[in-house]
Design a protein around this nucleic acid. Sequence first.
DNA 1: TGAAATGTTGGGGCG
DNA 2: ACGCCCCAACATTTC
Length: 489
Amino acid sequence: MSAKNKSSEPITLLWFRRDLRISDHAPLNAALKKYKETKHKEKGATILPLYVLDNHSPNITKYGGASLWWLHHSLGNLSKSLEQKGSKLLLRSGPAVDVIRELISELNVENLYFHHSVLSGEADIENELAKLCQEKNIECKRFKGELLFEPKNIATASGTPYKVFTPFWRTCLSQKRPSKPIAPPKAIPGPKHFPKTETLESWKLLPAKPNWAAQFSQLWQPGEEHVSDVLDVFLKGPIASYKKMRDYPSIKGTSKISPYLAFGNISIRELWHKVEGHEGADFYQRELGWREFCYHLISHWPEIIEEPFQDKFKNFTWEENEEFLKAWQQGKTGYPIIDAAMRQLWQTGWMHNRLRMVVGSFLVKNLRLHWHHGAAWFWDTLLDADLANNTGGWQWVAGTGADAAPYFRIFNPVTQSEKFDKEGKFIREFIPELSNMPNKFIHNPTAAPKDVLKEAGVTLGETYPDAIVDLKTSRQVALDAYTNLQNSE
DNA sequence: TGAAATGTTGGGGCG
DNA sequence: ACGCCCCAACATTTC
């Protein structure tokens, strides 16, 4: 394949990944700078924004269903804002390296710019691209922006990566604070000859037959355009009492920014600066620190996507039980706080953070199923699914991770429910069949007297499931399994 | 960013 | 008045 058909127009290929925005976008900014620098030659490298739907590259984790819904709308939104700036988004599908190689042969690509990712599967692609560009004499530039702090800058006194969050975060905070975000461009010079593009519709990213995302569009407005509205709500109220109120699932005490962050509709740096200065910001920023910590861990130990961080858990045996897994996924365990949380996830594409811990503990400890099952389900159903956070969160709750909750720390779903959903408000929202249960028994219908159930119109096993496991005995089984593991060391 | 079991203390009922 | 017991309420330890 030679350069016969090549248009001579010089191009900077701007590859969008999980950075679906135009604000605070370093590669875009650099591409603009490049254009301005070379413009006087009458052949400034115009910018070709590209998104690649990649379901084929090895070692990457394909998007789950809920993520694809968000991706669809984010891409539509990005496309629109690029058009408002005089540009357009090129859509291609296939392994990223192949797609870009093809574009290089079609067009006169002089530069390839994109954001760097510390995820190993993504970095593999980047390395191949760098090699390709070197062969073709193309400038390949990768930009930082995925994180607030570079993993390589954060190390213990002896130079090893941190395995514990608190000292990790202390060191991060002692670094130079994240620099100010870059303003969005006023205009983006697009190429005169725009290559053939696939269409968003043809990708069929939205669910078809059973449209399980029906409710999503009432609840979420994906894309960069809408981030500031959502963030403003948080900054005007909840952030001030974030430390306390974020624990109560029936209260709007959290930011709801996670899906925007997962797709880069807002940059982590911009988010950091937007919250800075508000009362309560340090507690919120600490949570951003956990995200940072998860990326830090996964960059140093990429194998933790599959393998337990703590070696001793390699020999740990988990239960296999399809019935249990189904009951958990569908919110039919007979424990209302678990079931309400799992239904919230399915219906809204999101779950309150405390409940992620509670349902995680229940799956891994009380049902004794492998955390992989939980991670896979979350990956498929969460709009904010993020490989580093998902891996970090599940290893944390399973007790297998770095700085994880000790294995014997087992949440009691009834106690948690009584503590954080005292009036059963959250439960009633997602389990209407329990709405007439009195507060005293709504947390554990299986333990309610017969007349109470009758009065509330609840028939266990019919209108609402019986508890699938006994908390006391299942807890003991989990503890015994852990003791056995310790003894077999 | 647990929960349960076990230990300790101190007030009140009561012989 | 005193010792004894019971048992909240709180603290500590164990898992």
